[in-house]
Design a protein around this nucleic acid. Structure first.
Lengths: 218, 218
DNA sequence: CTGCCGCCCGACCGATCGGTCGGAGAGAAT
DNA sequence: ATTCTCTCCGACCGATCGGTCGGGCGGCAG
């Protein structure tokens, strides 16, 4: 980050990501992006044909990082529960290392429908990457349920809950910090969130009693 | 909705809520709100001093409905698990009946930090309502955990997961519908989401084996 | 009838929006 | 030295932004 050798294009993508995450597509002007990148506004249009294309390029970069990190996990030769654990760890690591990602993803969820993504070619790439990640985790969970390794439930609903639990948390900013009573992104807070999330999904998808710490019984 | 007898002020709030939910604060102009309300742009400024005030008024209305519906549940004389079930039912009912609410809340989470809410008086009302709801559910869960009725875990983290699971789902729009393979807001889909969510939290917060369909034990 | 008041509007303001255009400057190839 | 390319920029465009202003209109009190 803030690399001197970074090409102008990468620099633009980098600062635009932070700005779009904070104030959204409509809330950030090209002028502001240019200033933050240390360029004139006209120069942005040399690298990106329009504001929409810049936004989609930023979004694709974000989704690309996610895809690269999460898809390989689903190919591992381990059980579904183990895969789910590693998937949660990796996603939370990514969201913690790239603080703009969570909000960018949540915003994309809204704004993707506005300018029809299917029309621009970059939009199709965005759609493809998003679909790949969602389909991958959904299929993995569905298989785990069919195996009997996970509790039988609706895999898509579990995925919705999983996304909500991870992305929402790291996008929650001040509200989340107020609730937690501390920072969201400290190493300790990230570690705790990982444990809480994994434990919650262990219990939530357990086919039988998860061994609890105190082993209490009725 | 679309009441003939509605005062202009209410009409403005109603159409502004739908617009802000779709495109956010920066994405919606006063002109557009005025047109949708069947008024001239100047008339908006008769009812609301500025765009920020209109936005905060919309947000407060949304949070007011939530607060009215959710807070009474926490005062019921029932157990924590029962309260949590009813709380989830009520929140999901609200999100399903008012389709703009989920996105409005998620956006508020982001945009609240931009124009410092503490400065405007309406912003303080927003903060108060939000805090009341969050503190209420957090305390209720914490008590349930101290009782031993719920599994011992971090109450704030559970709340984060709970918010994510409910609000994110109903804000997920086309992505969610693609994942589920059907509408989000049909009566049947809402019913299913309630069941999935409640069941997931039953398991996720169980201190002992939740009675499963097949009653399996270790 | 007169005057006031709540509601609404058209016209207008300076600022900013996304985007275009012609050209400047540097480096590499010829 | 010339030309081509790549990167960048300042000036400019029409449109739209949030917001103001003066006044019109209808109902209601005197």
């Amino acid at each position: 980050m803030s690399d001197v050798n970074a090409s102008s294009r990468d620099k633009i993508l980098e600062v635009a990501e932070a700005l779009y995450a904070r104030r959204g597509f409509a809330g950030v002007g090209m002028r502001e992006v240019a200033d933050a990148a240390g360029l004139g506004k006209s120069s942005l249009f040399h690298h990106f044909r329009s504001k929409v294309q810049l936004y989609l390029a930023v979004l694709e970069r974000v989704l690309g990082r996610i895809e690269e990190r999460l898809l390989p996990i689903l190919a591992l030769q381990v059980g579904a529960a183990e895969k789910l654990d590693r998937w949660i760890d990796a996603l939370i690591d990514e969201l913690a290392e790239q603080p703009a990602t969570a909000r960018m993803l949540l915003r994309a969820l809204f704004e993707e429908e506005e300018f029809e993504t299917g029309n621009w070619p970059e939009g199709q790439a965005v759609d493809r990457r998003l679909a790949a990640v969602l389909e991958g985790i959904t299929r993995m969970i569905a298989i785990g349920m069919r195996n009997g390794e996970l509790r039988a439930a609706s895999a898509p609903h579990v995925v919705q809950t999983l996304i909500g639990a991870t992305i929402f948390h790291f996008a929650s900013g001040e509200i989340g910090e107020g609730l937690l009573g501390g920072p969201l992104l400290s190493a300790e807070a990230v570690r705790v969130r990982k444990e809480e999330t994994k434990t919650f999904f262990h219990y939530g998808l357990a086919t039988r009693p998860v061994p609890s710490a105190e082993g209490e019984r009725s």
